[in-house]
Amino acid sequence: MTAAASGAPAGAVPVPADPVLAARGLSARYGEVQALAPLDFVVGPGELVAVLGPNGAGKSTLLRAILGLVATGGEVSFMGSSLPRRNPAAVANRGVVLVPEGRGIFGPMTVAENLELGSWRLGRDARERQRRMGRVFELFPRLKERLGQAAGSMSGGEQQMLAIGRALMADPKILLLDEPSLGLAPRVMEEILETLGVLNRAGLPVVLVEQRAPSALKLAHRAYLLSLGRLAAVIDPREVQSHDQLAQYYFA
């Protein structure tokens, strides 16, 4: 799981030959409204893929479509077999875990209870649950100090750490994050992105939806740029040298 797409020739945008996640012709609708035009989307083993674009570009919809939270067209396969549609619980059971926009933490519950819910599909295996919890605390020591605290009473950054920690409790095979930096101070955001880098370097494929492109591009192996519900470009982050160049993509 450590072989990233770095072996591909420089210049062309390297697309992994043996993707873990592959969407073909994936599209999404909210009722009558097409929110995402058909696109291909792949994530290779150990890759961190950024999905960039302005507000309303369809970034969140792409994640929701992968999970089957919205009505979709096309096909999504994960680790060689296709993912069920309109059954997000079953998708989660395959190890495709989403950290939703706005974090979706359970505010009235304690940090410990939130983490416990993260390992829902583990059932009653207390030892494994504790092992996973220990791993989360290694990444986010602050969560350990706040175990008994109501999750809703923590700072935005801590809540985001909890949201990621809770997702890790599910022992994901791939982690999807919807704008984890939203509403966070730049320093806190850097901290969280750094942690994602650590996770990714340990072999976990990550899909990172971000509006703040520069920080996401620092981590990403590849980036998909969405605009108005369509795929505008696939970018090799090493080729993006300047803000201007990125702006060109945005407004192209």
Partner: peptide
């Protein structure tokens, strides 16, 4: 716990594998 998860956020509960 499942009830509380649904109460907190149905989408988040689904994403954790809870059959809402």
């Amino acid at each position: 716990r499942a009830f509380a998860g649904i109460a907190g956020s149905e989408d988040a509960a689904r994403a954790l594998g809870i059959n809402v």
